[in-house]
Design a protein around this nucleic acid. Structure first.
Lengths: 144, 144
DNA sequence: TTTAATACGGATAACTTTGTCCTAATTGAA
DNA sequence: TTCAATTAGGACAAAGTTATCCGTATTAAA
């Protein structure tokens, strides 16, 4: 469904959010360990999220990544996915046609539109706070 | 959502079904032209569908691909997707966890399960006949 | 029987995604 | 000021996906 980059990006964002609630800045090394992702590759993805102003980074000793507390509840999965995978999820045709719309639909256009809209709605309504709370309570997990 | 291979496989199957209604066997060359796909790559995918007994092939001059008429309405998209992309759509975790189930869910487990079940249902209930009919009537398109 | 059209299948190339390595820049603390 | 910890970013390697090429086998028709 999503690229590896996007999977790591979502998990990393949740982990950063979780710690930002406690005022804890987290390092790349810690993030990669906690979400079970390759460190250097995760670094690239985090850079991407920083450039898209979804997370903040602080260089140097005692640096790391953080999200401003007041933003955590307003950051939606859609923003993260969009920053990393782009908007292909919203615009691409299920069968790869260059042009696929109501006037010139691919054979599965209607079926796909329905499912894609649900996916879109889910991504646009799910925020980091909800996800971080479940990790904190042990109701969900970031690795294994 | 799907791999290119799967997109080509679905479109090729629809085109073959369409022609099989008229007792017309179609060649690789014709298929690739009509669904706008690379010929040699499409050949590999068709071989896969043949091995999975979703379509039939006839070698030699005047050979080509066909689907037995009586089977067209019972072939579901799910079979084609499964033959080409495998069953990752059904079993994979949305965030790539090796283990992700109700007892040990990833942060977006519930949200994904819901959408994936809809996708699964759609693939399992959509058959080639429905799709071929729309192509025939000009209500949907296989290329451009 | 020869020929042309066709599917089959192995090898390999091109491209994309994923992952690694190394150096530079930054920064807080000793 | 020096050092160690850290992010940034370029170059590159590995793996996976997509695509091409070419020879072989098969088959119907001439």
């Amino acid at each position: 469904m999503f690229s590896k980059a996007c999977e790591y990006g979502i998990k990393a964002s949740i982990y950063i959010a979780l710690n930002s609630y406690d005022g804890q800045r987290v390092s790349l090394k810690e993030i990669a360990k906690e979400i079970n992702s390759p460190e250097a590759f995760t670094a690239k993805i985090l850079q991407d999220l920083v450039r898209n102003k979804i997370i903040n980074s602080v260089k140097g000793a005692y640096g790391g990544f953080e999200i401003e507390k007041e933003n955590i509840s307003s950051i939606k999965l859609a923003q993260i996915v969009n920053a990393i995978d782009g908007d292909s999820i919203y615009h691409g045709c299920g069968l790869g046609l260059d042009v696929c719309d109501a006037n010139h639909p691919c054979p599965v256009h209607d079926q796909f539109i329905a499912i894609r809209n649900e996916l879109k709605h889910m991504l646009e309504t799910t925020n980091l706070e909800q996800l971080a709370i479940d990790i904190k309570s042990g109701a969900s997990f970031l690795k294994i």
